[in-house]
Write a protein that binds this DNA or RNA. Structure first.
Length: 229
DNA sequence: GCGACAG
DNA sequence: ATCTTGTCGC
């Protein structure tokens, strides 16, 4: 037996982290839209065949009614393993391909995962937003970095997510009895607007409609039986 | 050195 | 994320 060689991804990990720091400097955390969003999109990525294939799902919804008007699923070979903090590199190709399938360009995109709430401020929502030059919001189901004050049990309770002194997102109890969502700006959106749009797109489930529908589509059980009002 | 660690 | 059935709680 020999000593374990350096992991093949070690070099790339370093390069990827440097690139993240550079890209993060280009992320704009402020609202930049001329008109209120009319088309929303939800993105989610899953893995099949023991991770060998990456699958991205996108759902386009009309902002006013939250009615889904387009759905697409794309698959491609997985190029990178999962490494905490480098998720965007693993998911970005599939996310961009899914976006390309849309017949309309969304005005605002919800991405499953972190936005600013990332060690180098470049979660998948930021990276995707930059790459597509689209306003994006990160909606994660757990914390990668940061801490927040205890949240009340009531739906709607929220607290800033802090990484040291900096606010990187918001912990939001989207539904009573559920663990809070971690909402953070991706690109071209402010903290306030990110939270506002997540709240406006909640429909009694833990996840906001864009992300919830994309999740269902990616996990294939994509029928259309609605639950409680 | 010892954990923590989106999906 | 994914592998997996029933089960406890709002």
């Amino acid at each position: 037996m020999t000593l374990d060689p350096l992991p093949p991804w070690d070099r790339d990990v370093r390069a990827a982290r440097r690139l993240q720091a550079e890209l993060a400097a280009r992320v704009r955390v402020a609202d930049e839209w001329r008109d209120p969003p009319r088309w929303l999109a939800g993105f989610d990525v899953g893995f099949v065949e023991r991770g060998r294939t990456t699958r991205a799902a996108v759902v386009l919804l009309e902002a006013r009614t939250l009615a889904p008007v387009e759905r697409h699923v794309v698959e491609m070979p997985t190029r990178m393993p999962y490494i905490p903090g480098l998720l965007s590199f693993r998911e970005l190709p599939a996310l961009l391909e899914a976006l390309a399938r849309l017949g309309r360009r969304p005005d605002l995109a919800f991405v499953d995962g972190q936005g600013l709430a990332h060690p180098r401020r470049l979660g998948a929502a930021c990276h995707f937003g930059l790459a597509a030059d689209l306003p994006t919001i990160g909606v994660a189901k757990s914390i990668l970095v940061g801490t927040h004050a205890p949240l009340a049990e009531d739906a709607g309770a929220a607290a800033p997510l802090l990484d040291g002194e900096q606010r990187v997102g918001t912990a939001l109890r989207s539904k009573r009895g559920c663990r809070p969502l971690i909402v953070s700006p991706g690109h071209r959106v402010s903290h306030e607007t990110a939270i506002d749009w997540v709240r406006r797109t909640l429909r009694g489930y833990r996840l906001p409609e864009p992300t919830r529908l994309a999740d269902r589509l990616a996990s294939r059980r994509g029928d259309d039986a609605e639950g409680p009002a």
